[in-house]
Amino acid sequence: MGYRAENLFRLLKAAAPTLLGVLGVFLLAAPVRLFEGVAPTPIIPLVIVFFWSVYGPDYLPPLSVFFIGLLQDLLTGGPLGLWPAVYLVTQFIVMSQRAYFLGREQKVVWIGFAFAALGAGLILWLVMSLMSGELLPLRFLMLQLAATAAIYPLFGAVFGELHRRVLVEV
């Protein structure tokens, strides 16, 4: 492989989790709804932030997490800064517990993700309730968080293979 190709490959390796996060935001913001809107769209960027904060924090620095959240705010019409704050808080807490998650069974990590998603959801609900001046209903948010937790094992397996085969081995 030539010098330029090697540098491009190294750059793509380093940017892979960030690019996955951006792709997750585009999927979340797309006007396509699962099962004709019956099933809420999972918060894929949250899965990405959690996974890479546990298994490859060097590949997803806080600046990338901030950018992913800001892009989500811009594309979904949310208050600017809300998603970056949620994702950065999630990343900080998950990285503080990273030693606990490493080497554990995937169902333990999945439970950890469910708690992280619940925490992120509570932050969102609290901020949006404060901004609207009333307690917002939790039903849709809880359904969205349940859908997000349900997809984690699939995405975790795919990201695990990407991490193992491309980012670590090559």
Rank of each mutant, 00 (worst) to 15 (best):
V94D: 05
T41C: 12
L28D: 00
V108F: 12
A146R: 06
V65M: 06
W125D: 13
L162Q: 09
L19Y: 07
L71D: 02
F9W: 09
F50Y: 15
A30C: 14
H163R: 15
V47M: 05
L70V: 00
V166G: 00
Y55A: 07
G24E: 06
L122S: 01
L162T: 02
L138E: 04
F113N: 05
E169N: 11
V166A: 06
F67V: 12
F51C: 01
S129Q: 13
F101V: 01
Y3C: 00
T18N: 07
A99S: 13
Q91S: 13
L34A: 10
F66M: 10
S96F: 07
R165C: 01
T76D: 02
G24P: 00
F113P: 04
K13L: 11
L27G: 14
L63R: 13
G112N: 12
F113Q: 09
T41P: 05
F67G: 03
H163Q: 07
A14M: 03
E36Q: 07
L80K: 01
V127S: 03
R164C: 13
T90D: 08
E36I: 00
G24K: 07
A120D: 09
A14G: 12
A16P: 05
S64K: 02
I43Q: 14
V54G: 04
K107F: 13
L34E: 06
F51V: 03
L102K: 02
L60S: 02
P61G: 02
P31D: 15
G121S: 12
G112D: 11
I151T: 08
A39M: 11
V65T: 05
P79E: 05
L12C: 11
P31E: 12
L8Y: 04
A39K: 10
G2H: 08
V89I: 11
F159D: 03
G37W: 02
L63T: 14
A147V: 10
P17V: 07
A39V: 13
M128P: 01
G21N: 13
I93Q: 06
I43D: 10
L23F: 14
L82S: 04
R104T: 14
V109S: 02
E161A: 08
L75D: 01
Y55C: 02
L27Q: 13
R98N: 02
P57R: 04
K107N: 07
V86K: 11
L19E: 07
V89D: 02
L141F: 10
L70C: 00
K13P: 01
A146I: 07
V94Y: 03
A30V: 00
V86A: 10
A120R: 08
F51D: 05
P42K: 03
L27T: 05
P17N: 04
G103A: 13
Q72C: 14
L34I: 15
A29K: 03
G37A: 05
L71F: 03
L167I: 12
D73Y: 00
A117S: 03
S96H: 10
A15V: 06
K107W: 15
Q97A: 08
L154T: 04
G24I: 07
M131C: 00
L118E: 09
V89H: 00
V170Y: 06
Q91K: 04
L80Y: 06
T41V: 08
W83M: 15
P62A: 08
S132D: 02
L126I: 14
Q91F: 01
V47Q: 14
L82K: 05
F67C: 11
Q72H: 04
Q144F: 08
I111M: 12
L28R: 12
F67N: 00
L126G: 06
V22Y: 11
